[in-house]
Design a protein around this nucleic acid. Sequence first.
RNA 1: GGCGUCGUGGCCAAGCGGCAAGGCAAGGGUCUGCAAAACCCUCAUCACGGGUUCAAAUCCCGUCGACGCCUCCA
Length: 465
Amino acid sequence: MLRVYNTLSHKKEDFQTLEPNVVKMYVCGPTVYSDAHIGHAMSAIVFDVARRYLEYRGYQVRFVMNFTDVDDKIINRANKLGVDPQALAESYIVAFRKHLEDLNVLPATVNPRATQTMDKIQSMIQGLIEKGFAYPARNGDVYFRVTHDPNYGKLSGRKIEDMQAGSRIEVEEEKEHPMDFAVWKAAKPGEPAWDSPWGKGRPGWHIECSAMNLAILGEQIDIHGGGNDLVFPHHENEIAQTECFTGKQFARYWMHNGMLQLQGEKMSKSLGNLVTIDDFLSRHEADALRMMVLNGSYRAPLSYSDGIMDAAERGLDRLRSGLKPASTSASGAPTDVRLALDKQAEATQQTFIEAMDDDFNSSGGLAGLFELVRTVNTARDAGASSAELNPAQDTLRTLTGVLGLRLGEKKASGGDADKFISLLVEVRTEMRKQKLWGMSDLVRDRLKELGVSIEDSKDGTTWHW
RNA sequence: GGCGUCGUGGCCAAGCGGCAAGGCAAGGGUCUGCAAAACCCUCAUCACGGGUUCAAAUCCCGUCGACGCCUCCA
């Protein structure tokens, strides 16, 4: 039985879907106004793993990730650069899509955009006004009436009174209550604007997610995800709008990932302490970032550092070691070794499911995989043939695949250099045959300095970057 | 100030009432011409102080500390 930690109840709950075998899942994507950083990547990876695991467990997942492509930040940035806000947003959407692909994040079933959901946004606002949950103000904005929602604050555990006390919000004259928030914003001259019953304007920050959910997944969904910095106000307001509009419970499970930190602080655009996805991928393989995320708990904050990346990359190598083929001289492993291998493959699968069923405990799942790796390697050393190794290696491949790891051969980034390296290695093999150890070691050491590792074995010599 | 998450070996980290998973690093060994890889062995009583229990890293109370949110943010 899968259990999922629900921010709404602060507990792990049994996972039950609205419809049998179907999961309706919505994850908040980025507001596209600048280069995405690895914190965004972490969030995408976390929910990609959840999605892959749900599919592995037999669910059909309708996975929606939105792009918020109209927003103050986008407008400001576009004005600064002197470009069209829509064009700016579009370029970042293209870039982000490419990043997701590079990071092996499965494509969403749908990627809706705020600007393409305008009808639904407006009909929702209209509905909220009719029900008394929203009101147009004299300045052309439309505000959500917080005090009319008895459940307001249930996700973040805040009370309207508490927030008022510590509030640093500038109180808009036009608001009935300081905590009321805009569902529609009147356009200033030169800003992107859409016609509406309340005058030209654009959606407020939270309404677009409510509307996109409604338009694509319906009134009720199973899982709503995002970074935990979105709990308040974004998700709180989303719940308020949607539930007041439909009169039904919106999302059953709210999942939030912890923040990626750099030197003890949240990595964020405003703090400027970030590593962009481009930066990261120019120095590491995509699997390494995923490995780093998988090694921890998705809800806990994660500190990015060279040390942690190093460990992630070594761990990746270790997983890969389990997939290496049988020795060409393999003549079959002893019975006890073969039995142990089968048994471990079985045990690993079980451990994996138990761990992942417990709120996607990837680190626990990984532990089982490492044990399988050791058993496979032991069997290979004991002379297991590829036929004997195959079933266990298939299990390993399947389960690492569920985590979204590709474990491909390390890229021979050298391009043209590769064939020269191969030549060098070939020559070295000849030297070794003639027992010219000094020369062979020199070649090996010098290549090592250049980033090329050589491994000699009974089956011959292999090398990799 | 309010709300919330958390504090496990040198580092990352699982465990959530019954002898402390796993990875990285380190040390010793097997293998190897020597290495590397692989394999074997070694390496913690769980921030602190009380309490509950036959039994607590795991539950309760308190202290200290970290981080997030309360303003745009994955």
